[in-house]
Design a protein around this nucleic acid. Structure first.
Length: 160
DNA sequence: GCCAACGTTGGC
DNA sequence: GCCAACGTTGGC
C-alpha cells in the first residue's frame, strides 16, 4: 500500500467456494473468525497485502449452483505468511515458497453480517452501477478484488 | 460436464 | 523475451 492512500478506507470482495469454505462455516467458527488461506495468484495476493485492519469485504460464493454475495466480513489481521504454502500435505502447497522467503500471504477475517438472503451474481449483473466490477465481467477469475465505495453502497442498497 | 478465459510454465 | 502448451477458474 502506498502511503498516499494508506489513510483511505478500502472495500474488498473475497471469493470462496462454499464446498471448501462457506459463510456458514465462518458463522460456526470460533469467534466467527478464519484465516483466508490458499490464495495463489499474484494479483490477489497483492490485494491481500494492501488490506488494513478494520476494512470490510464482501464474502462471495463461487463455483456453485448460485454464485452470490452472502454477507460481509471485517479484516481483523493484516497479511502474514500463509503456512499452507510450506505444507507438502496441503492442497495449497507451493514448493517454491519457503519459511524464510514466503511467497503467499493471508489475512484474518471475522464475520460481520450474513445477509438474510444471497445476492446472486445474476442480479449484480443487472445493476448498471456495478458494470465496472471485475466480478461481473466475463472471464474474470480474480478471487480478491477491491470494491469502489459507490459499488459497496450500491450493493448494500440492493440487499435492503 | 462443458468450455471460454486467463495465468503460468518452460522450451527455444 | 516470445509464445505454445498446459492447468485452473468459474459461470452456465
Amino acid at each position: 500500500m502506498h502511503s498516499s492512500n494508506s489513510n483511505l478506507r478500502q472495500y474488498w470482495l473475497l471469493k470462496s467456494e462454499p464446498h471448501t469454505y462457506s459463510i456458514e462455516d465462518l458463522q460456526n467458527a470460533p469467534s466467527q473468525k478464519t484465516v483466508w488461506e490458499g490464495v495463489r495468484n499474484y494479483q490477489a495476493r497483492n490485494y491481500l497485502r494492501e488490506m488494513q485492519k478494520g476494512e470490510e469485504a464482501f464474502f462471495y460464493h463461487s463455483s456453485c449452483a448460485q454464485p452470490a454475495i452472502m454477507g460481509t466480513v471485517l479484516i481483523t489481521r493484516t497479511a502474514f505468511p500463509d503456512p499452507s504454502a510450506c505444507d507438502p500435505t496441503s492442497p495449497y502447497y507451493d514448493p517454491k515458497s519457503s519459511l524464510t522467503l514466503p511467497r503467499w500471504f493471508m489475512v484474518e477475517v471475522q464475520l460481520k453480517q450474513k445477509f438474510t438472503a444471497p445476492l446472486p451474481l445474476s442480479l449484480l449483473k443487472e445493476n448498471p452501477a456495478l458494470a465496472k466490477m471485475p466480478l461481473v465481467q466475463k472471464g474474470n477469475r480474480l478471487s480478491v478484488m477491491p470494491v469502489r465505495p459507490a459499488e459497496w453502497k450500491a450493493i448494500l442498497t440492493m440487499f435492503n
